[in-house]
Write a protein that binds this DNA or RNA. Structure first.
Lengths: 230, 230
DNA sequence: CCGTTCTGTCATAATTTTATCATATCGCTG
DNA sequence: CAGCGATATGATAAAATTATGACAGAACGG
């Protein structure tokens, strides 16, 4: 799932600018103009990171950050403070309140994105993906290699994702639409028939080693991966 | 890369004197007159050690040191406090705030350098980097040399770090974003495509000896180093 | 302060991958 | 076994992604 970011700032212009950048960089986001609005959104869907304005009407940013840290449900949410001030004491107070970083206004889109990335990376160190294997066919997401008894197969990005999807969801039948949703991503404008073409390319790549028989066509329903005898 | 030191002191005379000594001893350094100037420099380029004046206008040295320790990005920077006082309590407070050592003014150049060496040595007891070798390509972090069957390769600093990263993390694919984080450091504003350019420079440097084939492009994913047959 | 080396970005070229279309096959049903 | 809808296949132009060369500004060393 995509990283969710909550932007809390009372200036619409800031919310819009930041939101635009976040969208452009593939983050999912929500905006709130004040603390109570923010609380509501957090309750509905816990964000991974909060961009918090220092100067807010009502509850101040610092206060809000402190409150977040006190709550068990929210204490692991990353917080980046947005502040117009540049005094040193603000940095100290901000970090003291539990903020993970802070950005002084005005800031460039580039800086914003870089900071967000930095904070998120600190929070989630590399995860090692699991190797999947089905009767001799191995797929390693870490090296992005697919091998059969030592032979390396060449797959394009989409074929790779497709095979990976099937290998992690074996036996069950998936309709073309479902496959599009899982492999291509939801709300993508692609013809259903395109799945056929990629299935074919995947089979072709698996053919030399005989594994193409793993991908079964289920007439009228879709496709499935199975290593059982048919 | 040479050890980077940041000198924070409001007296120009001190900055100059210390700077001269640092340069004379082969350290790379920057100076800042106050906390906000210092913050800026730290953000731009993380120093390995900070020489921090105890009495600063605005944020005091102690406060600044505490703030450094709280921030993930800066918490491993060594800090030496420069203080005119010599009271016992100051030492306690200073070390309490996370300083690694302190020097009382006035101090001799000799003492300054000796303390710096001592702190750096203490900080990096296991920083004796190991030589990495992959099928004949050797990289020695200590001498910063890369050799292939006795031939010395010329690499720029970035190419060196890049190769070193790959050699210490072989086989696995890394996205441009991850490479930026690991090789360039986290708080940096650099385009993803810049990675491509450095990959190319690295490959060019490895070409004469045939090792450029170690660096593989993984379309849609990033790059990886592999010595396996392809 | 000056010349050199190193860096980050661009614009452009070279490749690979993708989505479709048209057409051939296949599988079931009556 | 003819007919019909569903799949497989091959070709292809467009879209994405990566490689490369050039260049200006920054950093560095003296």
């Amino acid at each position: 799932m995509r990283t969710k970011i909550l932007v809390i700032d009372d200036e619409p212009a800031i919310r819009e600018m930041v939101g635009f950048q976040l969208m452009r960089h593939g983050y999912s986001y929500r905006t709130a103009a004040d603390a109570s609005e923010a609380e509501e959104l957090i309750r509905v869907s816990r964000p991974d990171l909060i961009l918090l304005d220092w100067m807010m009407p009502g509850t101040s940013g610092i206060e809000f950050a402190r409150a977040l840290r006190r709550n068990h449900y929210t204490k692991d949410i990353a917080v980046i403070l947005l502040t117009a001030k540049d005094g040193e004491s603000d940095m100290v107070m901000g970090l003291d309140a539990g903020a993970d970083d802070y950005i002084t206004k005005p800031f460039s889109p580039k800086e914003l994105i870089a900071r967000i990335r930095a904070v998120l990376r600190r929070m989630a160190p590399d995860k090692i993906e699991e190797i999947v294997e089905i009767s001799g066919l191995r797929l390693d997401p870490n090296t992005r290699e697919v091998t059969t008894e030592g032979n390396l197969l060449h797959l394009g990005p989409t074929e790779f994702r497709l095979l990976r999807f099937f290998m992690t969801h074996p036996e069950r039948v998936y309709s073309r639409q479902e496959i599009l949703d899982y492999v291509w991503g939801t709300n993508v404008l692609v013809e259903e028939r395109t799945v056929d073409v990629h299935i074919r390319r995947l089979r072709k790549a698996l053919t030399d080693s005989g594994y193409q028989k793993l991908i079964r066509t289920v007439r009228g329903a879709g496709y499935r991966l199975s290593n059982r005898a048919s």
